[in-house]
Design a protein around this nucleic acid. Structure first.
Lengths: 207, 207
DNA sequence: CTATGTGAATGATTTCACAGCT
DNA sequence: AGCTGTGAAATCATTCACATAG
């Protein structure tokens, strides 16, 4: 189980959501063809993605919905919960963290931090926003897995350096800054500007 | 200028932001090496990306910062402004649209819509939130380029079908639903759940 | 007969390495 | 001498097509 492509992982996450829908719809088994149709992939792609981790299907029948989603959850590491902190409790950050589904999917938001006195002390989703300065002592006593960064870009790298020292293992970066971290820390960027500019390019090249 | 990879476009968008920083820093020229360092790409990658659109550099010197950013802006179609509407004026949608930078980069938010009476009539960033029902008449008289969808997933496809009929050319989809649109419409998905689950996988596979 | 699992083939993207300007 | 521009090579990802299992 050596080298798994990022794109495969992202599709697994998608399949998982579709499997949950199939399960709710009362389906017991599902074919690669059916998963493909709903996910935008091809059936060969679905089968290859899944076969990288074992063979879960029954030939002539398809994949058992329940078992397969359990297995994907396991592959993605979703049986265990993950602790998450929010750094930057502005509009975007609080909107993100307020989302239902979040906790439902095993991502537990255990802290929210901001540097602005006007935001410190506010309640977000049952949490009191604390000062950035509290991060060090808080995480020193209770390490967290994931940090969501929605600060201004200029301060992001400084904060991330501290988080890395404090043992944070993954970062979801909503700033436009490219973060520098050691290989042992995973980073995913979500960048509105890039998405919009990619759409702009697409518009200019449409028939 | 036939087949340009999506990944190339996303990097161009990144380079553009870096070039703007170099310009502010007063640099006249920049090497592919310098762009590579700040963008996380390799210098060969930077040169290949740029060479797909022409040759802008001077051998032995590098790329002229001003000219190159102008050219990238042109490639991405950013000389023209794009009109944008927001559909779904909840916390996330309003947070997104409130962002500075947005208008700065030529994406003009010209309308915000929601189905909930509690949100209709509110002001967001100088715009009054209107009813979803107004979309048809509004866009029939004034077409828009891009729609940002932050509605609940269940209603997204229905709205998108209407938007497509009304001539919307690109969609930025924040719901977890996979949207079905004709080839003539571009869609980019931004999906928190996928990002978090990809991070979860990465955490499980770290040294 | 149906749908999986998978090598082999194809296609796409990235990296190499160097000739050619300035 | 320094750095671009680019074919050629290497790597990575997707699709094909079919043998195999239920």
């Amino acid at each position: 189980m050596s080298k798994i492509a990022e794109s495969t992982i992202r599709r697994l996450s998608l399949y998982l959501r579709l499997l949950e829908e199939f399960e709710i719809a009362g389906e017991d088994t599902v074919s690669s063809e059916a998963l493909a149709a709903k996910s935008g992939a091809t059936s060969a792609q679905v089968r290859k993605d899944l076969s990288l981790f074992g063979s879960f299907g029954k030939r002539g029948l398809g994949y058992p919905v329940r078992d397969l989603s359990a297995r994907i959850r396991q592959i993605l590491g979703l049986q265990r919960h993950h602790s998450v902190i929010l750094v930057g409790a502005g509009l975007l950050g609080t909107a993100l963290v307020r989302n239902r589904g979040f906790t439902e999917r095993g991502f537990d938001v255990v802290g929210a931090y901001d540097s602005s006195p006007t935001r410190i002390g506010r309640r977000v989703n049952g949490l009191v926003v604390k000062s950035d300065d509290d991060i060090d002592t808080d995480l020193a006593s209770t390490p967290v897995d994931i940090a969501i960064i929605t600060t201004p870009g200029e301060v992001a790298q400084g904060i991330v350096d501290r988080l890395v020292k404090l043992g944070v293992r993954a970062i979801l970066n909503f700033t436009a800054t490219k973060l520098v971290v050691p290989d042992s820390v995973a980073v995913k960027d979500v960048n509105m500007a890039i998405e919009l500019e990619a759409l702009s390019f697409a518009i200019g090249h449409q028939t």
